[in-house]
Amino acid sequence: MKPAPFELARPANLAEAAAALAQNLGEARLLAGGQSLGPMLNLRLVRPAMLVAIAHLPELGAVAEDADAVTIGAAVTHAAIADGRTPDVGNRILARIADGIAYRAVRNLGTIGGSLCHGDPAADWLTTLTALGASAITWSKTGGRAIPLAHFITGAFRTALAPGEIVQAVRVPRPSSQAHWGYYKACRKPGEFAHAMAAVLDDSARGVRRAVIGAAGGPPVVLEGEQVTPVAAGDALRTAGLDAVARHMQAVALKRALAEAVA
């Protein structure tokens, strides 16, 4: 199918992008790599009057790092991260996550910020970056903020972003050198939407032990400290409304992520 007609704005900077959003409140959507929004547009599940293209903005394509964290511009592609063109948080954690997203042709255009803002509960970045304790760094006319990813998604395809607020980067804290990391997702076919996924960060030097379960229909399910057990996960997933089959797949994903984190 072909998309319903829309107008296209190509702003020169974030201020112009925000202005375009503000002038078309509720009718305009940001377009980054378009690898999730494109299918929805073609299927006419989404019919915005305007798209505001931002993937070309230089301020979204840069990276930064300091002793505590790595910051990646929102329009950096999964492929750039997978290929090691961005700083990593250690042990190629980000590169390995990026390399498992969809297919290479999709990774070449899909962006880290676009994936987060799309808000698909089964997205790799949402679950893994939540486990890593990352925050979305936003920009708005009145000043940006750092939104911890654990609070970034309010529901499937819905974010905590205010109207006119744009994610400009993702700040990912560096785990300590002794940290253990595990990530597992269950897909019937490589690259398809995951049916279950779990990420585990065990970093006692920083006092962090966290498991995050994604593809659970809503915001990621976050378990901290003593809660990181299959039993606690099962309880949380029952509360989240998952059926027995889905809970079983999630339990397996969690066990495998835990096993990787121990290894």
């Binding site: 840069a62 990276v63 940006g144 939104i147 309010t154």
Partner: peptide, 19 residues
Amino acid sequence: PLPRGQFAEVREAAPTVTR
């Protein structure tokens, strides 16, 4: 490698979450 950039200073704030 991708270019280094600077990202604006931000105030830390968690949004109110409703479920």
